[in-house]
Design a binder for these strands. Structure first.
Lengths: 160, 160
DNA sequence: TGCTATTGCGCAATAA
DNA sequence: CTTATTGCGCAATAGC
């Protein structure tokens, strides 16, 4: 799960400060996307930190980072690069695939529920039939016992 | 259903020609969104026409439009306007609401399917029990018929 | 390490 | 007019 409610905020803030940690190399051609750009929220969520924050308490003794670069600087891949577009396009394809899959799964679940409900009704009916039939036979046997308790012997384990 | 595969193309084309039918007033501040901005598809889909196209053959005599504006020109509301942001924010809220609703619906369907399946198994078991019980009673009665065919059936009460 | 798969989000079109 | 739905792309991140 990825709660983008948080990451979007970060992202928005990052977008407000181009040339920070990653992307947005100063290429004037296409300033694509820029997520929301609502009335500029001048509130850098300094309290919202990324994974680096959570890692801050971990034991680094076993890591022995060679360079120990501060904000990680993920190879500023930044927009409109061919690699960026390639990655995006691949992800877009994956997203479509995943959503198609989800749609099919949901549809199947709905159909299964429908089918189970129908089958359920049939089973209920069957139980009704069997119960009635059973009652009839039991009644017959009880009548026999009333009339001739000596003769109706084989009733052995008939109690069930 | 809104096949955005098509509308996205239109949208992309429109974005390539700012100041066309709507939006994108020449405000240099925020060039927001700009959907895909992949290698600019220089292919104006002139064959893709909107609703106005379909209406072109209709009978307007009963309408008597007062002004009869040509391409409708939807009040170029164009980005970064306060009204635009307001609309967007409202829609975003509606979208979140709708998706929450969808998620809940899906979850309920899954739970219902699960529940129905369990109930189904119980019903199957019940049918098994009843069937066996019935077989036993039938067997008892058949034995009685073999032993004393004259006495047994009288108990049925069916005989006049 | 790098890939695909998932997921929440916002946008725009459009359905209701 | 409004809100509700839906497909899409983006970015974060889960997962292998």
């Amino acid at each position: 799960m990825s709660d983008s409610r948080v990451s979007s905020v970060i992202q928005e803030w990052v977008s407000s400060y181009p040339g920070q940690t990653h992307s947005q190399t100063l290429n004037p051609v296409a300033p694509h996307h820029q997520p929301t750009s609502r009335p500029p929220t001048a509130t850098p969520p300094s309290f919202l930190l990324t994974r680096a924050h959570l890692c801050s308490r971990q034991d680094f003794s076993s890591f022995l980072l060679p360079t120990l670069r501060a904000p990680v600087t993920k190879r500023s891949i930044s927009k409109d690069s061919a690699e960026y577009r390639l990655r995006r396009e691949k992800n877009n394809i994956a997203v479509r695939k995943s959503r198609d899959k989800a749609r099919r799964r949901i549809l199947l679940t709905q159909q299964r529920a429908q089918q189970l409900q129908e089958e359920n009704q049939k089973l209920q009916m069957r139980i009704g039939q069997l119960t009635q039939e059973l009652d009839t036979l039991k009644h017959i046997l009880s009548q026999q016992h009333l009339q001739g308790p000596d003769e109706g012997p084989a009733a052995a384990g008939a109690a069930i």
